[in-house]
C-alpha cells in the first residue's frame, strides 16, 4: 500500500492542516517511507487474537457517581482564550 498526492491532500484536509503545495510531494514520500516500513506487520499471524485494549489484566475502568464536582470558574476557563468577550470565547463567524 502506498499513498499518493490525492490521499495526502485528503488527510491534510481531514486533519485541518493547511499543506502548502510545495510540501505535498515531500510529504507523500515521507509518509510512504514510513508506511513501507510498517508493512512488515503483515507477516504477523494475528488469527484469533483480540486487539489489545488494556495494559494491566483484571482491572476494569472505575465508574464514578454522575455528579458535578468542579466548575463554575468561567474566568479560569477563559484565561487562555486568544479572544474573549463578556464571558464568551470569540470565534470566527460560522453561520452566514
Amino acid at each position: 500500500m502506498s499513498i499518493d498526492e490525492k490521499t495526502v491532500r485528503k488527510m491534510a484536509r481531514l486533519a485541518r492542516i493547511a499543506l502548502p503545495e510545495a510540501r505535498v510531494q515531500p510529504m507523500v514520500s515521507e509518509l510512504n517511507g514510513i508506511l513501507a516500513w510498517i508493512e512488515q506487520l503483515n507477516e504477523v499471524d494475528i488469527e484469533g487474537v483480540e486487539p489489545m485494549t488494556s495494559a494491566v489484566e483484571g482491572v476494569t475502568l472505575p465508574m464514578r457517581e454522575d455528579k458535578v464536582t468542579d466548575g463554575d470558574a468561567p474566568e479560569r476557563v477563559l484565561a487562555n482564550a486568544p479572544k474573549a468577550e463578556d464571558g464568551f470565547f470569540v470565534v470566527p463567524k460560522v453561520v452566514e
Partner: peptide, 13 residues
Amino acid sequence: YYLRAQKVRARIA
C-alpha cells in the same frame, strides 16, 4: 492498519 497493530500489540504483550 490500526486494528492489525492492536492485535500485534496483544502478541507482544
